[in-house]
């Protein structure tokens, strides 16, 4: 370190200034409330702006809906019988105290929970095992590829034949809808596992089961959660279709029944309920994903 005198002098200078309080450092003096507010706005401005636009766009949507139905616009599409937002709100206010409506929702949620959980419980382990063992992959993959393109709704007649009760066949349809996205994405995640990480684990003394648990599984988790999110979406699609066709209860049946009974506001109410439930369940999966993968947060 003593090769150059210039360097030494520079270092000494640095030491001297370091011991003195630096004059230009940002000192935490209590700033005025206006200054703080300005600073807060500069940091969060973008978010506030996005939020305001979001609210405005929803308000405009409701307004257009209201106007279209109020004046019963007929322009290619017919708004003659479409319920107005206020009518839908009225029917919502009534439905929320109606045990039958709540039962529809509860039953749909139960079917989703059963069908989707079964799909995850079968799809994820199967995908992991298929990704790890070639023979399992070679045996199962062809069957899965043949069945995968068949939409879950196309299974409805077959499901009614297969299962003794309607309830079981609807859960089965929901299961089928979410099963393939979960399986395929898990498998995809397994193929993308970095082989260097597997080698690193081997070098550190990991055996097969540990490598599976400590490397393959966590490495595939992001794709597993992608599969679960997509699977949840398809589960709702399949459930609603199955309920409309063969149900006696459920939010899909409620929506269809509303049409048959000329309860037009209830059609929109059913649709909105389905949308809200679908959104809530995908948010739930995302939240679980964030908890399960704390390393993903930057």
């Amino acid at each position: 370190m003593s090769s150059s005198p210039a360097l030494v002098r520079h270092e000494e200078a640095a030491v001297v200034t370091a011991t003195e309080p630096p004059a230009s450092a940002p000192v935490a003096t209590p700033a005025g409330i206006g200054v703080l507010a300005g600073r807060w706005y500069r940091l969060n401005g973008d978010r506030i702006r996005a939020m305001l636009i979001c609210i405005a766009s929803l308000v405009v949507f409701l307004l257009v809906w209201h106007l279209l139905t109020k004046y019963r616009v007929v322009f290619f599409v017919r708004f003659t019988n479409v319920p107005s937002p206020l009518a839908v709100y009225d029917s919502f206010a009534r439905a929320i105290h109606d045990p039958k409506f709540l039962l529809h929702i509860a039953l749909s949620c139960r079917r989703i929970l059963l069908g989707f959980s079964l799909a995850a419980l079968v799809g994820v382990p199967l995908g992991l095992v298929m990704g790890r063992f070639k023979l399992v992959h070679e045996v199962i993959f062809p069957v899965s590829e043949v069945l995968r393109p068949i939409p879950a709704i196309a299974w409805v007649p077959m499901a009614i034949m297969l299962w003794p009760t309607n309830e079981q066949s609807i859960v089965f349809i929901t299961f089928l809808g979410s099963f393939f996205p979960i399986l395929v994405n898990t498998l995809h995640g397994m193929t993308l596992v970095d082989p260097v990480l597997v080698r690193a684990a081997r070098c550190l003394g990991a055996r097969e089961t540990s490598i599976f648990r400590e490397v393959y599984f966590p490495a595939s988790l992001p794709h597993i959660f992608t599969g679960l999110t997509i699977g949840m979406g398809v589960a709702w699609v399949s459930l609603i279709a199955a309920e409309m066709i063969s149900g006696q209860y459920g939010i899909g049946y409620f929506t269809w029944e509303a049409y048959s009974l000329v309860q037009y506001p209830d059609i929109a109410l059913g649709m909105i309920a389905i949308g809200v439930l679908g959104l809530a369940s995908s948010l739930l999966i995302r939240a679980v994903g964030r908890l399960a993968m704390p390393w993903g947060r930057a």
């Binding site: 080698r199 070098c203 490397v215 966590p218």
Partner: peptide
């Protein structure tokens, strides 16, 4: 023990 060029730390 082995050290790889690609770091190879377990991200999780």
């Amino acid at each position: 023990g082995m050290v790889f060029q690609q770091y190879s730390l377990f991200p999780w």
